[in-house]
Write a protein that binds this DNA or RNA. Structure first.
Lengths: 141, 141
DNA sequence: GCTAATAGTTAACAAAGTTAACTACTTTTA
DNA sequence: TAAAAGTAGTTAACTTTGTTAACTATTAGC
């Protein structure tokens, strides 16, 4: 690692600590952070499958299975069996689930607001596009 | 949230998912991610106290207590009782602990390397300074 | 049509968080 | 200055959420 990489590494480490430290821990609206993240994912990826969710969060099928069971049992998501492949269940967020996502105090929103106060409009756009660029490149794995 | 904030929010969400998904899960060198993060923190904050570690990671004193017990028992850190206040124990990383931090495959290093390949030198510096700026502002809480 | 692969589940367990109640020590205060 | 209040850290009991192993049901390949 050269000097620039080292400096990036340090600030990225701070960022990771910040994210871990500020992630909602207990329940909010009767839903844990894990539940919330899954609902939000399904919201953003309508009719996705359990397999996809497991992959997105890098957790095992049984872990997702238990989470989905809770979310289904509490009417936060619904599933419908695929006609093309009956092993597969497509997931949909219910109104109740949507309500939670739309109304939860989300720490990322707070961050977005703080960031837009800290940076100029140009800086914010620049940061967003740099982050998008590296995220896009990470995806390619 | 205006359009720019919304775009930042989206990429920041992706970043959070990425960090959560890629954080080391199982043991590496006989040490879990939590252990590793604490060792690294103590490395970077020599003679810090359990209280400080708990605050840095936003976890409760008993949670830290158990982690430190493991790290002490495995000779990864050491503690010395404060002379000024005998309730307090200062933490120091041992050679063994330092070895683990210096030699672990750390996903943030991989990220730093990938990022420096994706962005130009100017972009990398720009990203680092923008992130440092927002991190600095978050600290002020 | 048998074999292999895939989506998801159940059971048993481990890691790491929580709160409540505790010890030991320090600081405040009446 | 002795009692009260506060602080650093620990122990115990519990919860959440991850894991692997073994399972069912379904689909795809030869």
């Amino acid at each position: 690692m050269d000097q620039d990489q080292r400096e990036f590494y340090n600030v990225f480490t701070d960022l990771q600590c910040f994210i871990l430290a500020n992630m909602q821990k207990g329940d909010i609206n009767g839903v844990t952070a894990t539940h919330y993240n899954i609902i939000e994912y399904v919201y953003r990826h309508d009719k996705c499958t359990g397999k996809q969710v497991a992959k997105a969060f890098s957790i095992s099928p049984p872990a997702i299975s238990r989470q989905l069971k809770f979310l289904l049992g509490n009417g936060l998501i619904e599933q419908e069996q695929s006609l093309a492949d009956r092993r597969v269940f497509h997931l949909i967020v219910t109104d109740k689930g949507r309500f939670i996502v739309d109304n939860s105090e989300n720490f990322r929103e707070t961050v977005a607001q703080k960031v837009s106060k800290t940076l100029t409009k140009t800086e914010l756009k620049s940061l967003t596009s740099l982050l998008a660029k590296i995220m896009h490149n990470m995806d390619e794995h």
